[in-house]
Amino acid sequence: MLPTDPGAAELLLRGDIEIEGRLVDASNATLFCAIELDGVSAQCVYKPVAGERPLWDFPDGTLAGREVASYLVACAAGWPLIPPTVLRDGPVGPGMVQLWVDTKEGDDLVDVLPPRSFPPGWRPVLHARDRHGDPAVVVHSDHPAVARLAALDIVINNADRKGGHVLHGTDGGVYGVDHGISLHSENKLRTVLWGWAGEPLDDEVVDGLSTLRAALDGELRETLAAHLTVREVKALRSRVARLLAAPVYPTPDADLRPIPWPIF
């Protein structure tokens, strides 16, 4: 099943979940599962609330709820950048369930390469040295969907956009995953997708922001209230309004840590 399949959300909400393994590199309990409903099956990621480690700077709500809220925001903007994501009961209690995305092996959208060796058009983000002391550059693709994902990170105030969270699906789509520490009311933006810093947002991004602002003035605000605080919803609305007033990708704040560590 593809993330764009119209039946994906129903499968995630009502399907029978069977745990098949655990993603051991994740900092919170992240379970790889099979899910089946009426003869239709797929793979998914299940993050139970019971497996979340408390975070002093994200004391409200749950990480699972923030994952769902981020998905709802992306959908409201008309950006299919996050795989279908729901909040439901699972084998070990309530949690976030997200459709698994199969990726193209060797087709990474974020990479660390020697200087001047990255593909034409790719965007350099950070100059550094590798473990051998040789010069290296963190770069990412200039794919238009990656640009929209960079804009989404700004909107949801993503505090942890690592390179491994940017997926190139076998269906050709670009997807972001792992949004549990997003949507805080204070500025916490940390991302590897700084390649467009200071450049104007394109028309498609601006149109999506306008659509999102209208949704936040309607039912979306109430829907998000189930996952976020009132202050966080207001801050989300303010970030969208500021981007529309000055439609430019922001530059990193030198007083903050703008790139997550580790990068992948």
Rank of each mutant, 00 (worst) to 15 (best):
D108G: 10
D108A: 14
V110D: 11
D111H: 15
V112Q: 15
L113F: 02
P114D: 13
P115C: 13
S117Q: 15
F118I: 08
F118P: 01
P120D: 12
G121K: 08
W122C: 07
R123N: 11
P124S: 13
P124I: 13
V125E: 12
V125R: 13
L126K: 12
H127K: 05
A128V: 09
R129I: 04
R129V: 11
D130V: 07
D130Q: 06
D130W: 03
G133I: 06
G133P: 00
D134F: 02
D134K: 11
P135V: 05
P135W: 03
V139N: 08
V139R: 11
H140N: 01
S141C: 02
S141N: 04
H143S: 12
P144T: 13
P144F: 03
P144G: 04
A145E: 14
A145N: 05
A145W: 02
V146C: 02
V146G: 00
V146Y: 04
A147Y: 02
R148I: 05
L149E: 05
D153C: 01
D153I: 02
I156C: 01
I156D: 01
I156W: 09
N157V: 02
N158I: 05
A159L: 07
D160A: 00
R161G: 00
R161N: 04
K162I: 02
G163T: 10
G163P: 01
G163N: 13
H165A: 03
H168Q: 06
H168T: 06
G169F: 02
T170E: 15
D171C: 07
G172F: 10
Y175D: 05
Y175K: 10
D178Y: 03
H179Y: 02
G180M: 09
I181E: 07
S182P: 00
L183A: 01
S185G: 02
S185E: 13
E186H: 08
E186T: 11
N187R: 13
K188F: 01
L189I: 09
R190G: 00
T191D: 06
T191N: 00
T191L: 11
T191S: 12
L193A: 01
G195C: 01
G195S: 01
A197Q: 13
A197T: 12
G198K: 07
E199R: 06
P200G: 00
P200C: 08
L201V: 09
L201W: 10
D202T: 14
D202V: 14
V205R: 08
V205A: 14
V205E: 09
V206H: 01
D207L: 07
L209Q: 12
S210C: 12
R213S: 10
A214L: 09
A214G: 06
D217Q: 14
E219C: 03
E219W: 09
L220W: 07
L220N: 05
L220I: 10
R221M: 09
